[in-house]
Design a binder for these strands. Structure first.
Lengths: 293, 293
DNA sequence: TAAAAATACTCCATAGGTATTTTAT
DNA sequence: ATAAAATACCTATGGAGTATTTTTA
């Protein structure tokens, strides 16, 4: 049995006439006769009753016809879906993201992507930049929203899609909380709340402090940026956070600009080799949206 | 594209290795290479990444694989369904029935048939014996429950599946309603309620009356046996009905046996030529069930 | 260098064409 | 008598085999 025979079967069923079916199929009538009889022999069942005024489906033919049509439809889907998959318009896309992108970037990016590529099934996972790089290379992630500067990695392509700066998050109880702007060195004596050691955000903040002439005293390490803000709110310390969190700060936390604002950037990272088309589409869309701002 | 290529595609996807896939397919490796590349060329898309340690699905391949599998499953269904159709285990079956079979025969037959042939879609229509014969021959009915004696028709096969007798249905107000049994001639002076002129039940009843020496006065003609019983209940007249209605008589109607009981039979009728397998199964089941009584 | 895939070439099965016969109404 | 399907026969495409080469980790 092959798809050609099923197409013949379905066409004959529609025309009830071998000659007309042959016309529609752009072949002559004899090979149709041969092909359909061969199919019947293979199935061990008669599909048509032959008569002088054409052919009629037998009960066996009536029962088999929907399956034959469905096979033809599926074959068409092979054609369509393979092309869609090739263009990154269909398939699964696993995206990793750093926690801080949840405040601004992710909520803008994901709905746009879903709207433009509705057949791509997204799965999202939070992780740190350092965790995501090997996963991109291993192929367990297709794209990642990471913090740049990423230590340069030859096999990972970066496209910066968001520029931001660090800003001081202070509890309202802190005397500096009402300042218009402060110098980072003013925080030298404070206790700090920070993300874990592998976080690029933390590394950037630490470097800024060193540039300002002090080493911050980190009293608490937590994995999520939102937890950092909660601890600041509780008065446990101060923190340096991306200014984009401003849309989601809890009451009791004040954000104060720094005289010299350390910059921090978010990028889309893709594996240099073997980037999925859908991942490339994701990056293109992210770049496009970042240009809109 | 043909099913063979889709099977190759699916098998390679499962083994990630052309040689192993070739083994499973009982062919050698080179034709596999050729066939899958030909499929890729036809689709205009690469389905696998080739490497020294085997092959891996591309995003296009991942997207197309479910459709390919579905085509193969449908092809299997063509095999299965055509055989089921041929054995009368799948398909549509249009059954006609005379109204009186609704009281006893149909409620026993239909559930048994559905239980034994769950893939056959039944459609039921009430009609008279005389209406159903041409429809059997025209093929708009596959089987019919008819009243025998049917005027002999060469192209219709009859199998009697129920023997019954006529019985008098009287309103309780009728003085004869309390008799153990009566002679049909006792009803000579009554007004009768009856089915329409084409009904075999009516013809049988009329003949019985003539044999008993009188021509009944038919005051009302209605199409349904249940309506006949309602009119008897209302006191509009008496009727001769099959004794099987006893399970469904309304209050106010008494059934009284006749000294000489006219017999009336129900049969399964099939077109002699072109009887559908499912219709033959239906008849076999009906005969089987009638033997059980 | 070793395993896997690709290429080269041969053979044969079979799809499709034309001409013609058989069948059924 | 006529329209439709079946048969006969021919050609050529292409699928599968064996032997061998190329590729890549």
């Amino acid at each position: 049995m092959d798809l050609r025979q099923l197409l013949f079967f379905s066409t004959i069923a529609e025309t009830s006439n071998l000659r007309r079916a042959a016309e529609r199929l752009h072949i002559s009538q004899p090979p149709l006769t041969v092909a359909i009889r061969k199919l019947e022999e293979e199935l061990g069942v008669q599909l048509f009753e032959r008569g002088a005024k054409g052919v009629r489906l037998t009960p066996a033919g009536k029962a088999a016809l929907p399956a034959a049509r469905s096979a033809l439809v599926s074959a068409d889907k092979v054609r369509l879906w393979s092309r869609e998959g090739d263009r990154g318009e269909r398939g699964a896309l696993r995206i990793g993201f750093v926690g801080s992108s949840i405040f601004d970037l992710l909520p803008r990016l994901i709905p746009s992507f879903r709207a433009r590529y509705p057949l791509v099934e997204l799965s999202l996972e939070e992780a740190t930049t350092h965790e995501m790089v090997p996963r991109l290379l291993a192929g367990t992630l297709d794209a990642a929203l990471v913090r740049a500067p990423l230590l340069e990695h030859a096999a990972v392509d970066l496209a910066i899609i968001d520029h931001d700066e660090l800003i001081a998050a202070l509890p309202v109880s802190n005397p500096l909380a009402d300042a218009e702007r402060i110098d980072l060195s003013a925080l030298a004596g404070e206790t700090f709340v920070s993300l874990g050691r592998t976080s690029i955000l933390r590394m950037t903040a630490l470097k800024a402090c060193h540039d300002a002439g002090f080493t911050p005293h980190i009293a608490q390490e937590v994995p999520q940026l939102s937890t950092v803000l909660c601890l600041v709110q509780s008065g446990l310390g101060v923190a340096l956070v991306p200014s984009r969190v401003r849309t989601n700060i809890p009451a009791g936390v004040k954000l104060v600009h720094l005289d010299v604002a350390p910059s921090i950037e978010t990028a889309v990272a893709l594996s240099n080799l073997a980037a999925a088309p859908a991942a490339i589409n994701f990056r293109s869309l992210a770049i496009e949206l970042s240009a809109d701002d």
